[in-house]
Simulated assay, not measured.
Amino acid sequence: MANVILVFASMTGNTEEMAQLIGKGVEETGVNLTIRELPAAEPKELEDFDGIILGSYTYGDGELADEFLDYYEEMDGLNLNGKIAAVFGSGDTAYDQFCVAVNILSDKLTELGATIIQDGLKIELAPDDEEICVSFGREFGEKLKEVLALK
């Protein structure tokens, strides 16, 4: 059975709500899911999972969440070749850079060898439509199972 880790950082609870809804969608596909909220996660454990989902709010004018900074730096040197990944985040369009943390984390995962299998999910503040997040998780779980079946 496929194993997925979902690691997220949340300051106001918006990204945490997204993480829980995405996790619900992943679990609906029968995939094993582990959820970790930063700082209670170690980057090295990403190598132990088939699928990786990272989530972060965007802080200020396009910065990665403070809780993600050390984790992000400690990801350097990981081998994520063959890993399937996706990224989500919350942001505020009042800032010039909307949900840039999603792009930052997607680029890092790609740099480390992971394959991003769906567009990043970017939500303004909190999810108004919960189904968008649940569907994101469900889509990830289904695509992961398809990829693993081809191996």
Rank of each mutant, 00 (worst) to 15 (best):
residue 148 L to H: 03
residue 117 I to K: 04
residue 20 Q to S: 09
residue 28 E to F: 10
residue 33 L to T: 14
residue 46 L to S: 01
residue 115 T to D: 15
residue 76 D to V: 12
residue 102 V to L: 00
residue 19 A to E: 04
residue 98 F to A: 10
residue 39 P to W: 13
residue 90 S to W: 00
residue 137 G to R: 02
residue 63 E to H: 14
residue 9 A to R: 03
residue 126 A to G: 13
residue 37 E to R: 10
residue 151 K to I: 09
residue 111 E to Q: 14
residue 10 S to I: 02
residue 30 G to R: 09
residue 72 Y to Q: 08
residue 75 M to H: 01
residue 72 Y to I: 11
residue 52 I to W: 05
residue 51 G to F: 13
residue 51 G to I: 10
residue 21 L to F: 01
residue 45 E to N: 04
residue 49 F to C: 02
residue 151 K to L: 14
residue 150 L to G: 08
residue 141 G to T: 05
residue 119 D to A: 11
residue 48 D to R: 08
residue 21 L to C: 08
residue 44 K to I: 08
residue 50 D to Q: 09
residue 35 I to Q: 15
residue 143 K to G: 07
residue 111 E to Y: 14
residue 75 M to I: 05
residue 61 D to R: 01
residue 10 S to W: 10
residue 96 D to K: 03
residue 114 A to V: 12
residue 36 R to G: 13
residue 91 G to L: 09
residue 54 L to Q: 05
residue 44 K to D: 11
residue 37 E to P: 00
residue 24 K to N: 15
residue 71 Y to C: 04
residue 24 K to W: 07
residue 49 F to Y: 13
residue 27 E to M: 11
residue 133 C to N: 14
residue 126 A to H: 14
residue 55 G to S: 09
residue 106 S to V: 06
residue 16 E to A: 09
residue 100 V to N: 14
residue 29 T to Y: 02
residue 128 D to V: 13
residue 18 M to Q: 08
residue 102 V to H: 01
residue 44 K to V: 08
residue 129 D to N: 14
residue 39 P to C: 13
residue 130 E to Y: 14
residue 33 L to A: 10
residue 149 A to G: 04
residue 141 G to N: 09
residue 75 M to Q: 05
residue 1 M to N: 13
residue 22 I to F: 00
residue 42 E to F: 07
residue 69 L to N: 11
residue 49 F to K: 00
residue 81 N to E: 15
residue 4 V to K: 01
residue 34 T to G: 03
residue 115 T to M: 15
residue 13 G to P: 03
residue 102 V to F: 00
residue 8 F to R: 05
residue 48 D to L: 11
residue 78 L to D: 07
residue 120 G to K: 08
residue 66 D to R: 10
residue 80 L to A: 11
residue 123 I to E: 00
residue 43 P to R: 00
residue 37 E to C: 04
residue 37 E to L: 09
residue 5 I to D: 01
residue 103 N to C: 07
residue 149 A to E: 08
residue 87 V to T: 01
residue 151 K to D: 15
residue 141 G to C: 07
residue 115 T to G: 06
residue 64 L to Y: 12
residue 3 N to E: 15
residue 32 N to P: 08
residue 36 R to V: 13
residue 96 D to W: 00
residue 44 K to L: 06
residue 104 I to G: 05
residue 120 G to S: 10
residue 58 T to S: 11
residue 107 D to P: 09
residue 146 E to H: 02
residue 131 E to A: 15
residue 141 G to F: 01
residue 3 N to A: 14
residue 22 I to H: 06
residue 106 S to K: 12
residue 16 E to P: 05
residue 56 S to N: 10
residue 139 E to Y: 06
residue 140 F to T: 07
residue 148 L to T: 02
residue 18 M to G: 01
residue 48 D to N: 11
residue 47 E to N: 03
residue 102 V to I: 03
residue 22 I to P: 00
residue 141 G to E: 00
residue 12 T to I: 07
residue 49 F to G: 09
residue 150 L to N: 02
residue 126 A to E: 15
residue 117 I to W: 01
